[in-house]
């Protein structure tokens, strides 16, 4: 077996580069998502983008636009239903995202589209179209830039919203901004791993890094590192086993998380033994 074989194919090199880029965006954002405790929201929005994608296709709009809009609609209706009833947020999410996902599936069967349903659900990194590629890259850079510019404000919003308000930041705007960035991240990573597994990209790197460090700065670096390694490893391995690229990436993410978990367990045992 030739270990360098994947690098001889342009589509593989391209896939590695995109997966690394998506890995970076997801990793940086996942730190905030994990700290805010919004993992379930990530799951909800990632499912809810489906009807948006189908409708965008019908209207001839870029799929990313439809997905982004559907994501925001999902987040806003969750917020609206929660604030006007006594139902708990996680329950509302369950209702809204399954409803929207089902709507997406129904719409999909009604219209014959070239975009294969499987590609949307499970990603299509190796066969990515030029247009989708450009969308992914643009959305990735926009989202990443926004998160990095606002990283201190987002940190404050996640840690102590009351103080954010006290110094004159609008927590309402920050709340919806974080939701918009979440939708953006999902749109960016949709092509790589598909909307069913996106949530793994959104939480695992942050969690892995959270296990290993106690400072946000280091957490961001570590999450990015683990996410990029997992993305590239997943793409690389999928070449040899001919498996789903998205699934391989997510599996690699879980593997790194498991490593971090075990390592930390041993580490804390050692420190208690020392004391």
């Amino acid at each position: 077996m030739n270990w360098l074989a994947p690098f001889q194919y342009p589509f593989m090199v391209e896939a590695l580069l995109i997966s690394a880029l998506v890995g970076i965006v997801c990793a940086v954002f996942s730190c905030y998502l994990v700290l805010k405790g919004w993992s379930l929201m990530g799951d909800a929005i990632s499912h809810a983008v489906l009807p948006g994608i189908v409708l965008a296709y019908l209207c001839g709009l870029p799929l990313a636009v439809g997905a982004f809009a559907a994501g925001l609609i999902c987040a806003m209706s969750i917020g609206w239903i929660k604030s006007s009833t006594r139902i708990k947020e996680d329950t509302v999410m369950g209702i809204v995202f399954t409803g929207m996902f089902a709507l997406g599936l129904v719409l999909f069967t009604k219209v014959q589209t070239e975009a294969h349903l499987n590609h949307i659900l499970f990603g299509n990194l190796l066969g990515i179209e030029r247009e989708d590629l450009i969308q992914t890259v643009v959305v990735s850079f926009l989202t990443l830039a926004m998160v990095l510019i606002l990283r201190k404000d987002l940190m404050l919003f996640c840690f102590d919203p009351a103080h954010a308000r006290a110094i004159g930041l609008s927590t309402v705007i920050l709340h919806y901004l974080l939701l918009a960035l979440l939708s953006g991240t999902i749109v960016a990573s949709m092509q790589a791993v598909g909307i069913l597994l996106v949530v793994a990209m959104l939480v695992t790197p942050g969690c892995t890094a959270r296990l290993l460090c106690h400072r946000l700065d280091r957490m961001l670096v570590l999450a990015t590192l683990s996410s990029v390694i997992a993305s590239c490893l997943g793409v690389y391995v999928s070449f040899f086993i001919n498996g789903s690229t998205g699934a391989c990436i997510v599996l690699a993410q879980s593997f790194l998380f498991a490593l971090a978990f075990v390592w930390r367990g041993r580490q804390s045992k050692r420190t208690t033994a020392l004391n």
Binding site: K152, D153, L156, C158, F159, D160, I167, C213, H214, L216
Partner: peptide, 30 residues
Amino acid sequence: PQSEEVDWTFPVSVWDVVMMGRYGHMNFLR
């Protein structure tokens, strides 16, 4: 405030928290 409703496990140091008091004096990049 009377009680701080913050996530005490948040990965920030004492220094970082006090620095948050300066955010209002910094530009948008903080």
